[in-house]
Design a protein around this nucleic acid. Structure first.
Lengths: 212, 212
DNA sequence: TGTGATATCACCCTATTTCGCTATTGCCCG
DNA sequence: CGGGCAATAGCGAAATAGGGTGATATCACA
């Protein structure tokens, strides 16, 4: 028996959900709330396995509520259901700890299926949402690759790397077994190639553009 | 009519897929290949809308192949199908540009559904994979929030920010309308709090820990 | 064989940074 | 009211960084 709590400010929709859930044999509505006031207390008194969470709610929104639920009840799965397709919402919902994200256009059976799915260890997502998640994933993580690598030579990269680690010219020279004047020359060349005039600027650029 | 190309080294499986696809009314097999030799030429001669890609293949693996396909045919959707559940594979497949990731335990109808789904703009994923994607997403992007904020005061943060921008003490002083000696004091305090001893180190730490 | 890129090193000079110590002002809190 | 903290400011010394100029050796490539 999967116990489900509903958070939905629209009264009509909330009651519809409750009926839908209770009508299923393997699902039971543990509670239905119009807002997140006393959220923690409510869930403590009426434990559940899955939370069906609306995003647009008065007072605390569904994203913040998701975070709160996850903090107090890490084992509870949260299924976001909303009309919003925006990347920003999807992104924040996932980071807040949601385990699924479905649009309100889903069929009644779709809701039941999604609840069963989330309880079984899956992450139901409306197809379009899933695509957005993958795109977001790619976008956010792709820039982890160098944007530009300027034309630093191998040795210059080594020097820059050590500079980023916060080492002084003297220490860099010692690390590379060269004289301090050589390090100076390399750094001079690095600055010219990166168009910067100080170590802090170079480090900043190196980290931002992932040259190191 | 959805045209699908198959990349699968197992001959038996490959032929099974071909039969399965051709048996569907709205899907047509555009080609079936045991490896990625002449991949680009093959796809040029036999255009398709969706690629069903195996990960484990001799020679070029499915991840690299995905990247290659996306480079030459950005509009083609790639559906990864594999026995691997590993995070590393999932992660790389997504970054390479895959639009779906299903496990080989899927039913025959599941394959057809996934192909239709991917063509319709969705991203079919085996439930467990979807969950892993969300987890990975959270893990990789969560550290985007400050790890530690040390105990920098407002003014110290401003100074650090300007330091990260590569400004000298003199410029920082001018920006904040204070004397250069005040900047010196702030920087001394910042270094003490961050446990560093140079500007480059401070910048490095500030950027890594997202203090700025 | 000459040319260019890379890596190495030296000397000089100035600007900047780092760090020591001290000190004043204003503000909040018990 | 006194103590703590943030912000301000100053002085001085030593270390470090930044730039100018020039030189040598190696290696690849035309």
């Amino acid at each position: 028996m999967i116990r489900v709590s509903i958070f939905e400010d629209n009264k009509h929709l909330r009651e519809t959900f409750r009926l839908l859930l209770d009508q299923a044999e393997d699902i039971q509505c543990a509670g239905a709330y119009p807002d997140c006031i006393n959220l923690v207390e409510n869930l403590e008194q009426h434990p559940c396995d899955v939370v069906l969470m609306d995003i647009e709610m008065p007072g605390m929104n569904g994203i913040a509520a998701t975070k709160l639920v996850k903090e107090h009840f890490p084992a509870v799965y949260i299924l976001i259901q909303t009309v919003f397709f925006e990347d920003e919402y999807i992104f924040n919902a996932i980071c807040a700890g949601a385990s699924g994200y479905i649009l309100k256009s889903t069929t009644p059976d779709g809701y039941l299926e999604s609840i069963r799915d989330v309880q079984a260890g899956g992450s139901p997502m409306t197809p379009g949402i899933a695509r957005r998640v993958l795109e977001l994933f790619k976008d956010k993580l792709q820039p982890a690759t160098p944007v530009q690598d300027y034309d630093l030579t191998v040795q210059e990269k080594k020097v820059l790397k050590l500079l980023v680690e916060g080492k002084s010219y003297k220490l860099i020279a010692a690390d590379l077994f060269v004289s301090i004047d050589t390090v100076k020359t390399h750094i001079r060349n690095i600055y010219a190639k990166l168009h910067v005039h100080s170590g802090t600027e170079a480090v900043s650029l190196a980290l931002r553009d992932k040259i190191v």
